[in-house]
């Protein structure tokens, strides 16, 4: 697959955590691709492994606890997992940048936001102080921070949540990264501010022709931002498809359940469907398909053998034995309350 405009390929990625109570597999066999200028959404609920995936790609797992026993992360033809740490440091920030849910914890509280941006461009772009400050002001202006020449001297706590996230975006875009990873970037923000930030991100991605991996639990945000989506559940990608086929023809029961359980502004229902039960914990994963404890469509096979990723249609994958029947099955949903 020597695709010309392929930016990132993650192949068979496994991440394990060594905890006090033993070793657990947080993600197992994750595959996905990001092309240049494309936005991939990773959607799932807490504990599904979506954040672990991004930290694994960035090689930012906690040392001594997180480990990647197998898999490849191929970025522009290089396997990041094999790179020496020194090389990797050049990639982080400059090539691949990351935006977190709560910029307050990602920004250093004792430096001004301007200083933090300046430090990054000095490091990666080799500018001198004066150039770097002018550049910082330009970037702040670009992300729509009012009075940028004043705001670069603000400390993180002096900015509102929305402005902080903008400052974070300015910082992350300042080195013109090819890939941006955003982990729930708008979850902590109010909806009107979320709309502003998403709008800004879209505009910047277009301008810089950067790719984005958008990690979120919010299907609404996914629908607005992503071109392709990986749905994760209990450490596995359970469905992987382009955005429109995914919403039109969800082919994994978890995706079906997720879409049915959210209240929607455009559809009125008297009663929501829900997915019965809870996510199994990592120490007690069921045998067979990991969704079998909550799935309304199980057969005997689901409890015996874990399904592989089946190709439903070209480019649309589902990790379900009954993927072919899903369109028919999904007409009825058993909430099992």
């Amino acid at each position: 697959m020597a695709n010309e405009n392929m930016l990132l390929q993650v192949k068979n990625l496994h991440t394990i955590f060594h905890t006090e109570d033993g070793t657990v597999e947080a993600i197992g066999g994750v595959d996905f691709e990001v092309k240049e200028g494309e936005t991939l959404g990773i959607v799932g609920e807490s504990g599904c492994g979506k954040s672990v995936t991004s930290l694994s790609v960035m090689r930012l797992l906690p040392k001594g606890i997180g480990e990647i026993p197998q898999g490849e992360v191929i970025y522009k033809g290089k396997n990041l997992l094999k790179l020496p740490e020194k090389e990797m440091r050049k990639i982080r920030g400059k090539e691949i940048a990351m935006i977190f849910q709560e910029p307050m914890t990602a920004l250093n509280p004792v430096y001004t936001v301007g200083d933090q941006l300046v430090e990054m461009v000095e490091l990666h772009l080799g500018m001198n102080k004066k150039e770097a400050y002018d550049y910082a002001i330009k970037m702040f202006e670009k992300v729509g921070i009012p009075m940028p020449e004043k705001r670069i001297y603000s400390y993180p706590h002096e900015l509102s949540g929305g402005l902080r996230q903008r400052a974070m975006i300015a910082m992350m875009m300042s080195c013109n990264p090819s890939l941006l990873i955003a982990d729930e970037p708008t979850t902590a923000l109010d909806v009107t501010i979320q709309a502003q930030v998403l709008d800004l991100m879209r505009a910047l991605l277009k301008e810089y022709n950067s790719s984005l991996i958008m990690i979120t639990h919010d299907l609404g945000v996914i629908a607005e931002m992503a071109e392709r989506v990986a749905v994760m559940y209990a450490g596995r990608i359970v469905e992987y498809a382009d955005i429109i086929p995914l919403f039109k023809k969800p082919s994994h029961p978890y995706t079906v359940g997720l879409m049915r359980s959210i209240p929607r502004p455009d559809v009125e229902v008297d009663r929501l469907d829900s997915i019965k039960g809870v996510v199994p914990d990592l120490f007690h994963m069921p045998k067979g398909c990991r969704f079998n404890t909550r799935c309304p469509y199980t057969t005997d096979k689901c409890f015996e053998e874990e399904p592989p990723l089946f190709e439903v249609e070209p480019g649309h994958f589902s990790r379900c034995w009954r993927y072919a029947e899903m369109e028919e099955l999904s007409k009825h949903w058993e909430s099992g309350e």
Partner: peptide, 21 residues
């Protein structure tokens, strides 16, 4: 501003408020 979980809906008349509360 409320995102709709349906990628086929194009929202042209979207109002994006300026500034913060």
């Amino acid at each position: 501003a409320n995102p709709i979980p349906d990628p086929t809906i194009e929202r042209k008349d979207r109002i994006i408020l300026q500034g913060d509360v």
